[in-house]
Amino acid sequence: MTAPTAAGVLPTYVLRLADDLLINAQRLSEFITRGPELEEELAIANTALDNLGVAQQLYEYVSELEGGARTADEIAFLRAEREFTNCLLVEQPHADFADVMGRQFFLDAWHCELWPALESSGDATLAAVAAKAAKEARYHFRHSAGWVIRLGDGTVESAKRMQRALNTLWKFTGELTTADELDRRAAAQGSGVDPSDLQAAWQDRVGEMLDEAQLTVPADRYQATGGRSGRHTEHLGHLLAEMQFMQRAYPGMEW
């Protein structure tokens, strides 16, 4: 990926925030009709909708910053896998309800730190989107952390599955709080935040909940990265194939 110009830092930075939310929303949507109970389907669908709403606002802002060269829909539905800069965590598939909640728990914990920090962004639009997203993230976290605690402190089987999910996903969490060149430039411009500044707070938030859940913070030190520069796990391509199918098959289609 070529380094953006000074003017390109903000749209590129906003794009990665939006990509995390869109891909996560798509993953969550896959669980609709597969939830353990109706209330959970509603919860998961609502969380996906909140994420999608923030993503849409951010893509529209990217489109505006780019001078309207692409619409929000084109950015979401006509980019290839290597052009997505979401973190690897959100594209990870799930086979079990514990996988869904584990992925959401790590992400919500991150958003509970990220959005409040971005509320003081020097960019007024980003600050306004962040202020709304921060409230929603706290609600989502209460839900996902609630399930991590219930499953962790539940039966032998539920604790085993929850711990397994956390262990599997752990290697994708380091990327959330690892700063790259773009993060540092966005932070230096006053529009973004350096994610490594939020690392300790994220770790504390996660650790506190896992303690309560009687689960163990995974010890695996290997951390996979690459999502921020478009190098994804094999799962993203399959997700995009489904998500982008309509626009690819029927270019320009609108509802």
Partner: peptide, 8 residues
């Protein structure tokens, strides 16, 4: 102003 970000 939207109530929730994704409010349809």
């Amino acid at each position: 102003t939207p109530t929730y970000s994704g409010c349809p």
